[in-house]
């Protein structure tokens, strides 16, 4: 566990999302401390990704307040939040298939570097950091799954965020690849990032996270250190009784 200051860099209070009559996320309070890796777990359909979408501005909140660096963000939208320093990846990879890998990452880099040559250099550096520089000129969609996941991460990293929201970046990888991505995530955090990560692979979550928040049926049912969560009866029940793995 690394040290981190007590102040929250990103926090949501009373975050709620309604789709018509259905309440997908119900008044959740969640906060991310600086330099922390926060794990977000819960059975399928629990509302994790919806919560994620609201924290990253991809989806508007029905109710709730979002604070970044302590300041309230009135109408969070994903492109503005990204400019402020919140980056995210998607559960189902979303490559720009009409661009090469390098160009994909450049789209992210452009937010900090207006000139093409600078953006290209910055993007290349990020590719090296995630170990994808060999594939720099491959087509954006002609990649293996682990490579696609790395490109997702690289693109978000290129926007030079302070907060990174990773949505199921491990799912679908074999054990070796899982280890490598976990290494990458630890490295990214060591470089000063604060991270929220959604994952289904329990081992990875327990190993990576400093703290864990458990969501079930749209509400937060538990929060604490990995060891506490692992032995929390409510959590165990929600996984056994609730959705499938």
């Amino acid at each position: 566990m690394s040290e981190h200051s007590g102040e929250a860099i990103l926090s949501g209070k009373g975050v709620t999302k309604r789709f018509g009559g259905l309440v997908a996320v119900n008044h959740v309070d969640i906060h991310l401390n600086k330099h922390e890796i926060l794990g977000l777990i819960g059975p399928n359909g629990a509302g994790k990704t919806t919560l994620f979408n609201m924290l990253s501005g991809t989806m508007p909140m029905s109710e709730g307040e979002l604070r970044y660096h302590g300041k309230v963000i009135p109408k969070p939208r994903s492109n503005e939040l990204c400019k402020m320093g919140i980056g995210r990846t998607y559960q189902i990879c979303q490559p720009f298939s009409n661009l090469t890998v390098l160009e994909n990452v450049m789209v992210g880099a452009y937010i900090r570097h207006g000139k093409t040559s600078e953006a290209r250099d910055a993007a290349y550096q990020v590719l090296k950091r995630v170990g994808l520089e060999q594939a720099a000129h491959s087509g954006g969609s002609a990649l293996t799954l682990p490579q696609l996941k790395r490109m997702e991460v690289a693109r978000a990293l290129a926007t030079e965020p302070d907060v990174l929201l990773l949505d199921e970046v491990i799912a679908g990888l074999n054990p070796t690849e899982v280890e490598r991505i976990m290494e990458l995530i630890r490295e990214i955090r060591a470089g000063g990032m604060s991270i929220i990560i959604i994952e289904h692979v329990m081992r990875a979550m327990m190993n990576l996270s400093d703290r864990i928040v458990v969501i079930n049926q749209g509400t937060k049912i538990a929060e604490g250190l990995p060891a506490e969560i692992a032995s929390n009866p409510l959590v165990i029940e929600s996984y056994l009784g609730g959705g499938k793995h």
């Binding site: 990204c82 995210r88 979303q94 490559p95 720009f96 937010i111």
Partner: peptide, 21 residues
């Protein structure tokens, strides 16, 4: 930059927005 953003939008608007576009 504009051209890259155009093409990113063409490929995937949502992802582009998450990257600050």
């Amino acid at each position: 930059k504009r051209g890259f953003y155009f093409r990113a939008i063409s490929a995937n608007e949502g992802a582009a927005a998450s990257l600050g576009v």
